[in-house]
């Protein structure tokens, strides 16, 4: 039963991962909460780990969550499910690529999906923020955490900091002050 849920959830996540980036985070979080595979806090930890380890984030998250929910079998099944839509969609679309690429309908549809992805990544930031910022003082915003988040945000946007170094530095800061 849980294997079946993992498969359908991650197939869905793979299918609706369009345009890369963190588009799928909101969807992954929705599925995790629905089936209770892990706490929202563990989910944030996994995003951090996925960012620090090589490979696509969707694949890393699938392996991790699948393992947590149903061991090795769960990990392999969730990972297979999340990449299966790639296999199907690329093999089909590459046959019709020339026509697909210039189709007005396809372009118009993507022009509508792209801003949705931006909105969903923004939503993921808010949802993850509401989990992270109250870890230490339950129910209240934890100001040092908020300050750290804002510094990271500004550094990434205006100073082009390297995300992996930022995460390692923040782990160290966490060790010292939290």
């Amino acid at each position: 039963m849980i294997l079946m849920q993992l498969f359908t959830s991650f197939f869905k996540i793979g299918l609706f991962t369009i345009g890369g980036g963190y588009a799928m985070l909101a969807l992954i979080q929705e599925e995790i909460v629905r089936y209770g595979w892990m706490t929202p806090q563990e989910f944030v930890d996994i995003v951090g780990i996925a960012e620090m380890t090589p490979g696509p984030i969707a694949v890393n998250a699938a392996t991790f969550i699948g393992y947590g929910a149903a061991g090795l079998r769960g990990a392999l099944l969730a990972t297979t499910a999340v990449v299966l839509p790639s296999l199907i969609s690329v093999l089909i679309v590459s046959k019709f690529w020339e026509r697909y690429k210039t189709s007005k309908g396809v372009q118009a549809t993507f022009a509508g999906i792209r801003p949705v992805v931006a909105g969903l990544v923004g939503a993921a930031a808010i949802l993850v923020g509401s989990t992270s910022l109250q870890v230490l003082a339950s129910g209240f915003i934890h100001l040092p955490t908020l300050a750290l988040s804002i510094i990271v945000f500004l550094g990434l946007i205006y100073r082009k900091w390297d995300p992996i170094r930022v995460l390692l530095a923040c782990a160290l800061i966490g060790l010292i002050i939290f």
């Binding site: 806090q41 930890d45 992270s132 750290l148 988040s149 990271v152 945000f153 946007i157 923040c170 966490g174």
Partner: peptide, 22 residues
């Protein structure tokens, strides 16, 4: 404790991604 720091960074990371994608 280390992960409390990581979680703070993840929020900033995703917010920055939202701006970039936007």
């Amino acid at each position: 404790s280390a992960f409390n720091g990581v979680r703070a960074a993840v929020v900033g990371l995703i917010a920055a991604a939202a701006v970039r994608v936007g």
